[in-house]
């Protein structure tokens, strides 16, 4: 049955999100064009006027209302545009991670004041980008850390954000309680931690096997399944954890078959055996996941999403 009130509210929010999103994307495109006929002063004047206007609209309309929150998010995006224009005009030579770091630092007070899950998501994306770029441009470049460690670090901070979200909701922070905030963070954390762990299992970098990413992924998957099964029952979040774990088990199967039989397609024996074993492994992995999801779904059917 279609929930009329929900979808009317959704339609209104979708309209606001589409309008604000496309308008802000247009502003970003405009400054990326780097119009030569526009003087540097005019560029700064336009961005800063837009920034002040967005902040003023947010305050005038009320930052606890949807339009006010959208305006404040707009101000946060324009802050990033302003930093990009500063880089364009003065050719500062700063690393890109510094731009993102400054952006995250400057918009943090607005994210705190805004009390909007979407605003915090924007802040998190900017902050995580800064961290990942710092890992690439400093830690990996100076041999202070490996790519694997950087991935795990980024994934761990997203797990941390998810834990903070859960604690905050438990303490009554209602504006963070929307279900999608949990699902987005859970999916992002699992996906980011999956990449280095799968890389290790499939031997992408031909490095020595390191336990770090494997331990981080398995730990996150086990903790996630336990948490959303027993502690905070949530079937959708469980499906995310089980789905990514299923993909990981398939990777393990591939590596085991590769090591024991080999995926050589030049000889009948290995080709038949390896592909047959892979079928059996894939059926077992996904069939097992299907069975687990069915049972968990039945067990959690009375739990509201």
């Amino acid at each position: 049955m279609r929930d009329e009130a929900f979808w009317t509210r959704w339609g209104r929010r979708a309209l606001l999100a589409l309008g604000a999103g496309q308008f802000l994307a247009g502003v970003v495109f405009f400054f990326a064009y780097n119009w030569q006929d526009l003087s540097d002063l005019a560029k700064f004047a336009i961005v800063e006027a837009g920034l002040v206007a967005a902040a003023a609209v947010a305050i005038a309309h009320g930052i606890d209302k949807a339009f006010g929150q959208a305006a404040l998010i707009g101000a946060s995006v324009l802050t990033g545009v302003l930093l990009a224009v500063i880089g364009q005009v003065f050719q500062t030579g700063a690393d890109v991670f510094e731009l993102f770091l400054a952006w995250a630092a400057l918009i943090l007070p607005w994210a705190i004041a805004g009390r909007s899950a979407l605003h915090w998501l924007l802040w998190l994306v900017v902050a995580e980008t800064a961290l990942a770029l710092y890992g690439e441009q400093v830690l990996v470049a100076l041999d202070l850390a490996s790519w694997e460690q950087v991935w795990v670090l980024v994934g761990a901070t997203v797990v941390g954000a998810l834990a903070v979200r859960e604690l905050a909701v438990r303490r009554g922070v209602a504006w963070l309680a929307a279900h999608w905030t949990r699902l987005v963070l859970a999916f992002a954390a699992m996906a980011i931690l999956f990449v280095p762990a799968a890389g290790q299992v499939l031997d992408w970098g031909h490095d020595e096997i390191s336990g770090l990413s494997l331990a981080a992924f398995v730990g996150a998957a086990v903790a996630g399944i336990w948490c959303y099964w027993r502690l905070l029952p949530d079937f959708a979040a469980l499906v995310i954890a089980i789905g990514v774990a299923d993909a990981f088990v398939v990777c393990i199967g591939y590596r085991l078959i590769e090591e024991s039989i080999g995926f050589s397609l030049d000889e009948a024996g290995p080709a038949l055996l390896s592909s047959g074993a892979m079928i059996a492994w894939a059926v077992a992995a996904t069939g097992g996941s299907a069975l687990a999801m069915r049972r968990l779904r039945a067990a959690l059917k009375d739990v509201p999403a």
Partner: peptide, 30 residues
């Protein structure tokens, strides 16, 4: 919209005007 950035058919200026116009129309509706 992300891909629109890389569309070579028109300049970033034209695309920015299109996006800002559509966005403004939607905000007006809202």
């Amino acid at each position: 919209i992300w891909e629109f950035y890389a569309d070579l058919q028109s300049t970033l200026l034209t695309k920015s005007i299109i996006l800002m116009s559509v966005g403004a129309a939607l905000l007006l509706c809202y």
